[in-house]
């Protein structure tokens, strides 16, 4: 069943890439399906899902391998579809995703905390508008702009990715901190905790599930958008997709698309594991 969703997803993103307008709306649609897939089910179903995802990904990878092996690959296809190229692209893709996410954590969580404070009534709308803008501006447009300013390469791709995925983490941090019961904050202050202690020991601890959920969304978004890195020569699976399209080699595009989706699913799966482990006990 998960395999079905997966292929549908891959086809969806493939279609959008194939249309030649790999802008924000399409990618958002693809990750929308991912987000909908993890609407909180019951505990047992969640546990079952934890086993299902890696199994489905393995099945899809095996099917992909079998399909590609059955093809008669010409020299152009062979130049892209070999283990060393695929591993290199996978490493580049992951590197981009993880570096962008690390930056997002460093930027979005503190900003989210700042935005959550009722004292910062002026700063909050400014921060939120900026973060919204980052997601609203088409990533490909931002990448082109950044290319003019900083040239092509890894850093340029990073800027685009970070701008694109700050919002979910920032929003969730803000909401996670704000939704902490005011009575808890009052009790904490009344017991003699400093404002910093209240933030670190109470508010942030209780916001952990929300922050992790935002981070998971951001990661999955980033994996999808990182395919655009190929346009600024940052590598990644986007390169396979674009090369396949340019050279009219369908198998190369399919491999690029399916592998991207597999990474997205696996990262989402790791995110679910992390949520289970890091969620404070007692909640």
């Amino acid at each position: 069943m998960a395999a079905d969703t997966l292929t549908a997803d891959v086809l969806g993103s493939e279609a959008s890439e194939g249309a030649g307008v790999p802008g924000a709306p399409e990618t958002a649609g693809a990750s929308g399906a991912l987000t909908a897939g993890r609407a909180r089910p019951s505990r047992r179903a969640a546990r079952l899902r934890l086993l299902l995802t890696p199994a489905a990904v393995c099945a899809v990878l095996a099917a992909l391998y079998a399909w590609v092996s059955a093809q008669d690959l010409d020299s152009i296809e062979q130049r892209s579809l070999n283990p060393s190229v695929i591993l290199t692209k996978a490493a580049e893709h992951l590197e981009m995703t993880l570096a962008a996410t690390a930056l997002v954590v460093v930027i979005a969580i503190p900003l989210g905390i700042v935005a959550s404070r009722s004292r910062n009534r002026i700063a909050t709308p400014v921060i939120l508008t900026a973060a919204n803008l980052g997601q609203a501006v088409p990533c490909i447009g931002l990448l082109v702009l950044c290319t003019f300013l900083m040239g092509v390469g890894f850093q340029t791709a990073l800027v685009g990715l970070v701008a694109y995925s700050v919002l979910p983490v920032l929003r969730n941090t803000m909401i996670g901190v704000q939704q902490v019961d005011p009575a808890l904050v009052e009790a904490a202050r009344g017991m003699g905790m400093t404002r910093g202690q209240v933030l670190r020991r109470v508010e942030l601890r209780l916001a952990v599930p929300a922050i992790l959920a935002g981070l998971r969304t951001a990661l999955v978004l980033t994996v999808g958008v990182a395919t655009l890195g190929a346009f600024v020569a940052a590598g990644g699976f986007g390169e396979l997709i674009i090369n396949g399209l340019k050279l009219n080699r369908m198998p190369v595009t399919v491999v690029g698309g399916v592998l991207t989706a597999c990474i997205a699913f696996l990262i989402d799966w790791l995110g679910a594991l992390a949520e289970n482990v890091l969620k404070p006990r007692g909640l």
Binding site: A183, L184, E186, A187, R189, G190, M191, G192, L206, L283
Partner: peptide
């Protein structure tokens, strides 16, 4: 803050920290 640590404080909503055990709550 130092003053409040030397004054007991209990409120209607109790305000026990849900992520801490009872022991940790009392020992705070």
């Amino acid at each position: 803050d130092e003053l409040r640590r030397h004054i007991g404080y209990a409120i209607q909503q109790v305000g026990l920290f849900p992520h801490l055990t009872i022991g940790q709550n009392i020992g705070l």
